[in-house]
Amino acid sequence: MAVSGSDFKQWLERRGITTSASELGRLTGLHRVTVGNQIRRGNVPESTVVGVARSVGIDPIAALADFKEYQDLDSRPRTPTAAEVLSQVHHADLMVELQHRFHEDLFPRNDKVKIDFPHDGSHRAWIDAIDTGDVRHDVTEKTGTAITYLFSQISENKLTPIQAVTAARVSGTSMVAGLVVVGLITMKEGDWPEDVRETALMVMKNEDLVELIQQRLNLLQRRLRQRKEAFEYAEKLTDLIG
């Protein structure tokens, strides 16, 4: 889902921004035909709105909040929960921290979390971190997405901004954090402190760290098994038919 073309045009006019496709193309770095098509088809991606907002010096969150789909975007504190922050730490970094806690001389702690997000499985980890009950079903109901499609989007790190915001909305967490997690806005724009992941990792209790690693490894194991099964099936069939 994206914002409608007419809403986008009205927003541009309200904010005193040019509505010319070529100018918008120049502002966003997109081709003018692409921007023109987005407006004409009435389906302007949130990334275009954010791109325009950034280029004219408007806060991207304030810009998105001008659209009815995101009206309540900034109605909650922007700060993410510790679980949300940790969901954006790759299990390799979690294991580095675990090693450090075993033997700090042999395994010195990283000053910075090495692997950036989104990483493989980061959308799923975030959904798991904010899930208070049935967030996936709630998102499918509210966004009109088929449940199987949403599952594959989550697995493939392809959550859309509206899905992320809806998930945060139904879970009662920061909606801005959802946009940071899907990569629509930067950590800085979402008011995430630069070292938020390192801090969350350092203050984590040992038992929580081990449990989180265990969860991630279970997911990794399941993912590897699924990939192996998919590979075996596909290869067998291509070998037999081709």
Binding site: L224, R227, K228, A230, F231, A234, E235, T238
Partner: peptide, 8 residues
């Protein structure tokens, strides 16, 4: 293609 797509 199977080997390339489902790299484990």
């Amino acid at each position: 293609l199977a080997r390339k797509t489902f790299d484990t």
